[in-house]
Simulated assay, not measured.
Amino acid sequence: MTAPTTVDIVREFPDTTWADDGPTRGVEAVVEDGQVLSFPTLPFVLSEAERRFLDERWADGKAKNISVRWPGGELRGAAGSAADLADLRTMIVRYAEQSEAFALRLFPHYRGKLRRGNTSFRPADIAGRETSWRKDDTRLHVDAFPSNPMQGTRLLRVFCNVNENGRPREWRVGEPFVAHARRYLPSITRPLPGSAWLMQNIGITKRRRTEYDHVMLQLHDHAKADLDFQKTGPQARVDFAPGTTWVVFSDQVLHAAMGGQHMMEQTFYLDVEDLQRPETSPLRTLERLLHRTLR
């Protein structure tokens, strides 16, 4: 069996504050190139009262995440008394606000363009979670969603390991997106005529699935189904220690979550045209490789 090529895409920064009065980074080019930005000394600090939420019992068992959904701000996926749920929501909302201030300091070019997506707290342990191979996030993949077509919109995510027992968040990261696309594009067929209209109208998708979404889903599925690639493809293990924050375009960087428990996550949406370098996006990369517009 061939040993995997080591991937080196993690870049560390010494930031210690979430506030927008910290150093303006201007690292759009770094993250748009498919790098992972890591901040080992930037914890999301829980109050003494909030530490009680570091327990799986607060999840309702129906979803892997407890989340606050925007723009309404409703709490979902949690179980507990009204008072406890109000405190839990306050903690998650604070993470959303701090993440947004931090992202705008990192990426001044995105100011006024980033849109806040869901904010999540993940209390469950990754290990031992039973799921289908398509939903198995311990396999290297780029993010793509069957029911929620992104139509090219970027997925920027800010994660933080809030584990208080010393457990790292164990990731694997994989090959550059362009290499990954070249690996599987020859085996990806075009969508059936009329399929996007049908899926939207019978409620399978929330909006129209473009050919871009079709290709991204196939890249996601091909990678997860390819066990040889999972074992021998270019990759590296990355451990994010407790108190570490990391930022990544999860629709571009191949990643797999191998272990850990208790994590915060904030999603932001960004249109391709609002990137500093739109040509680096998965949409533009796939269009160059396929020599056609993916609409």
Results as ranks from 00 to 15, higher is better:
residue 72 G to E: 14
residue 105 R to V: 10
residue 101 A to C: 06
residue 150 M to G: 08
residue 163 N to S: 15
residue 140 L to P: 06
residue 58 W to Q: 00
residue 87 D to C: 05
residue 174 G to W: 03
residue 98 Q to G: 02
residue 115 R to S: 11
residue 163 N to T: 01
residue 139 R to S: 00
residue 104 L to E: 14
residue 157 R to D: 08
residue 178 V to Y: 04
residue 185 L to C: 04
residue 147 S to M: 08
residue 170 E to T: 04
residue 178 V to F: 02
residue 117 G to F: 04
residue 167 R to Y: 09
residue 189 T to H: 09
residue 129 R to T: 13
residue 77 G to D: 03
residue 141 H to T: 02
residue 98 Q to R: 11
residue 123 P to V: 01
residue 165 N to V: 12
residue 156 L to E: 07
residue 173 V to H: 06
residue 95 Y to I: 00
residue 150 M to S: 15
residue 109 H to K: 12
residue 138 T to A: 02
residue 133 W to D: 14
residue 110 Y to G: 02
residue 185 L to F: 05
residue 173 V to P: 05
residue 187 S to D: 11
residue 62 K to Y: 00
residue 136 D to A: 00
residue 161 N to E: 11
residue 100 E to G: 09
residue 116 R to T: 13
residue 122 R to C: 01
residue 141 H to V: 02
residue 123 P to M: 12
residue 182 R to K: 15
residue 171 W to N: 02
residue 78 A to L: 10
residue 80 G to I: 06
residue 62 K to C: 00
residue 109 H to N: 12
residue 185 L to G: 01
residue 120 S to V: 07
residue 82 A to Y: 08
residue 165 N to R: 14
residue 111 R to S: 06
residue 79 A to M: 02
residue 128 G to F: 03
residue 132 S to C: 09
residue 58 W to P: 10
residue 84 D to T: 11
residue 94 R to S: 09
residue 75 L to K: 07
residue 99 S to I: 01
residue 75 L to D: 03
residue 184 Y to V: 09
residue 180 H to K: 08
residue 175 E to H: 03
